[in-house]
């Protein structure tokens, strides 16, 4: 519940402030957002599985975001930035899909 309220607050704040992303962060923000989404779905699934743990969620959220950004940064340094961001997005997308499928099974028993 608090998580939902926080999400709504964040969206409202983003709409109101219309912040400009610094140029150095622009390649990493989309990857970081996808990584955070992955952590969020993972947390939802864990809640339904009954194994949710605050600390795991917080750590996985932060480490996902930082790690994804780091991978993209490394790829940029190696000259394969766009390919590596694609790879990260694909992997995270697969995880989000499988988590969403598990959540769906819990909610609809199907």
């Amino acid at each position: 519940m608090i998580a939902l309220i926080g999400l709504a607050l964040g969206v409202v704040a983003g709409l109101l402030l219309q912040p400009t992303v610094p140029t150095e962060l622009q390649p990493y923000l989309p990857i970081a957002v996808v990584a955070a989404l992955d952590a969020l779905f993972g947390g939802l699934r864990a809640t339904l599985d009954g194994i949710f743990d605050d600390r795991v969620f917080v750590v996985s959220f932060l480490s996902n975001v930082v790690l994804a950004a780091l991978i993209v940064f490394l790829g940029d340094q190696l000259g394969v930035g766009s390919q590596l961001s694609t790879a990260v997005v694909v992997v995270l997308g697969i995880r989000i899909f499988s988590n969403a499928a598990a959540i769906r099974r819990h909610l609809f028993r199907a």
């Binding site: 998580a3 999400l7 964040g10 955070a36 932060l62």
Partner: peptide
């Protein structure tokens, strides 16, 4: 509360992106 703050961060990031 920390989780809520993280989710707020996520929402903020999504909208910004």
């Amino acid at each position: 509360l920390i989780i809520g703050a993280l989710c707020a961060l996520l929402g903020f990031g999504v909208v910004t992106q």
